[in-house]
Design a binder for these strands. Structure first.
Lengths: 363, 363
DNA sequence: GCATAATATGAAACCGCTTTCATGTCAAGG
DNA sequence: CCTTGACATGAAAGCGGTTTCATATTATGC
């Protein structure tokens, strides 16, 4: 291996001290233009790239962003990560990836990450509740940005969507299509987003003056299997009690629902309209294709990085633990979602739609 | 932020020197058992975790594995990465992720990675040819493992599959189903795997005594669009010249083919049987579901990490540049693939199959 | 023309750990 | 009882940067 070019080499070649080279490196203002030029040229010539490790050690802060992710096979993750990676690319930071692959305790992982001292900030992609440890660290000044879920009061700077409004739109879409008995398959209660989506659903019913029937709300786990279970449960309902449509809290469950429905001879959307939530890649390919709320995962990744870096550079990085005065809630970036209309909601089968507009006007 | 516990703190608390603590840390043998115990206990109590950054700096080698990947949205990547992440988790290494998101030159990226001095080894997920720079570095002793593609003679230690044999199986499967005119949509020539798959296809035809018709080989780019283009090209062929089946060099193109075929009124598998290659998640969900060769991506990731670490620890890590004597080709781990039979090849529609065997005998 | 401030640069300490080299200790060997 | 090692440990020198503090240089004001 060729010996690495160090700051010392550059200093010698440029006839200056290491300190000056370091200043050039960090774009400090107090270096004579001429000197800077020379140093930069030499660095260029020598192909010098400063060691992140050394810089981190010496400077006390590092140029590494720790990214904590669920397994990549969770279908929303790759897009988010793509956004993260792309945003990082435009900076001089790098990504250290901590995948919570196995079922380790998140707290353990977080501890390990930080103790390693590599990264000085953290990007957490975590659907579901945050660990107390993370909150504690953040309150101690660790820059953290969370993608996706958020505890009741926003606890950490985060990037996400408005689940309530999005769910409202999804449900309202079904209502506008003329469906009146609309079921909901919700996510697990510990997920904040599951609750919010449920609320959006309720609100839409209310606003449309539709009665709410608790029997039409099913509990899911956000996993495919619970979608299947829900379809089975629906199919066993007496015909008169069957809903005409269902808003399913994520696409993963919707897939399970779709496949079970097919097996049960339930035609989608003719017998039952379905709207999902997420718009992951598969959603455009299942049969029938899934009408769903598109989450801007890529943008979420990008925005999260930007937010994190602004936190890092920004002034207010030091919310002293326990400090009371001047509390301001953590920044939350809320990105817009979009309803993607495909086959499963029945909107594309026009004659059907017209029928429904009739029945709507009856109201 | 709480002040980090350093090796010095531990040393003081244990009443030993930093050097001794370091020895314990690195599991050197020459520490009295009693001392080791004490130090370990104190480290435990203090929740001490050594700084990777400092260790890397001081030791000249680091515990960071650089992983160079294509964008995560390339569908084969997440599974590989999952394998990588899981394998890493069992070690005390961490992953630094370099995603070649934008269209930057790979050489630039590689240079940057190494110059950063963070990582002392590299895992390259790169379909397609390797950059000369990478080869050069590897020959200088940088431990590198490549996943997937491989230049004509294996140039670097790598993990992958036997593309030739797998393609052979795919094609042979079609042949066994009774198809005789079998087309091939191949990947771009600069991809080694594309060539090998083509060879496997040829070989299968030969072995089955089927004539090879160059007009039935189409050039693709491994992207969806070229699958569509191929379907269009096929559809314009006079009926008599149309193939009965096609082996498509990757699933991505197969999807394009499938969707275009549908639009063109070409029924799969009745009018044309299709076999793909990769078995990415979508493959089980497109309509018709895709018969394909399953690549063990997850295992590839795991094996690559293991290979890389063994290279790192192993003795022969120093192939001095230019050294001639005792050359041994780089290790290649070849993982088995599997033919996954789904709808698109027609094997599942039995009656239909019989029909075809009839029409076959007519020829 | 000289005091004073602003600007540019260098010397050296330091970040947390590894490693070399020196030192100290103790058991075996003569 | 005194070597001779083997073993255990400590002191100190880095690793490649950053940062503080001091110093040298130049610009500014009166």
């Amino acid at each position: 291996m060729k010996p690495k070019v160090t700051i010392e080499d550059i200093a010698r070649l440029a006839g200056v001290s290491k300190a000056t080279v370091s200043r050039v490196l960090n774009e400090r203002s107090n270096v004579k233009a001429e000197t800077r030029e020379r140093v930069l040229r030499i660095m260029q010539e020598q192909g010098f790239v400063p060691s992140l490790a050394a810089a981190g050690l010496a400077g006390g802060r590092s140029r590494l962003v720790g990214v904590l992710t669920p397994p990549f096979t969770q279908p929303t993750v790759p897009e988010i990560l793509r956004g993260v990676a792309e945003a990082i690319e435009h900076t001089d930071y790098e990504i250290v990836l901590y995948s919570t692959n196995a079922g380790q305790s998140p707290t353990t992982i977080v501890n390990r990450i930080l103790a390693l001292g590599l990264t000085s900030c953290l990007l957490v992609i975590q659907p579901g509740p945050l660990t107390p440890r993370l909150l504690q660290l953040a309150s101690q000044g660790l820059p953290v940005v969370v993608i996706d879920d958020q505890g009741p009061p926003p606890e950490l700077p985060s990037v996400g969507i408005d689940n309530r409004v999005s769910a409202y739109q999804a449900t309202m879409h079904l209502i506008r299509l003329g469906y009146r008995r609309i079921a909901h398959l919700q996510g697990p209660a510990e997920f904040r987003c599951a609750q919010e989506r449920y609320q959006g659903y309720r609100q839409a019913l209310d606003d449309a003056g539709l009665p709410f029937d608790p029997a039409l709300v099913f509990n899911g786990t956000f996993e495919t299997a619970s979608g299947r279970a829900c379809a089975v449960a629906l199919a066993t309902l007496p015909l008169t009690e069957r809903p005409e449509a269902i808003f399913i809290a994520n696409d993963q469950m919707a897939f399970g629902f779709l496949s079970a429905a097919e097996a049960l001879g339930l035609r989608i959307p003719q017998d039952l309209a379905v709207v999902g939530f997420d718009d992951i890649p598969l959603s455009a390919h299942v049969r029938p294709t899934l009408t769903t709320i598109k989450q801007p995962f890529y943008e979420m990744g990008r925005n999260a990085v930007e937010l994190l870096l602004s936190l890092l550079h920004g002034p207010a990085t030091q919310p002293v633990a326990g400090a009371e005065g001047g509390y301001q809630p953590p920044i939350r970036i809320q990105l817009p979602t979009r309803l993607v209309i495909r086959e499963s909601c029945g909107a594309l089968t026009l004659h059907r739609r017209q029928e429904q507009e009739h029945s709507l006007s009856d109201e």
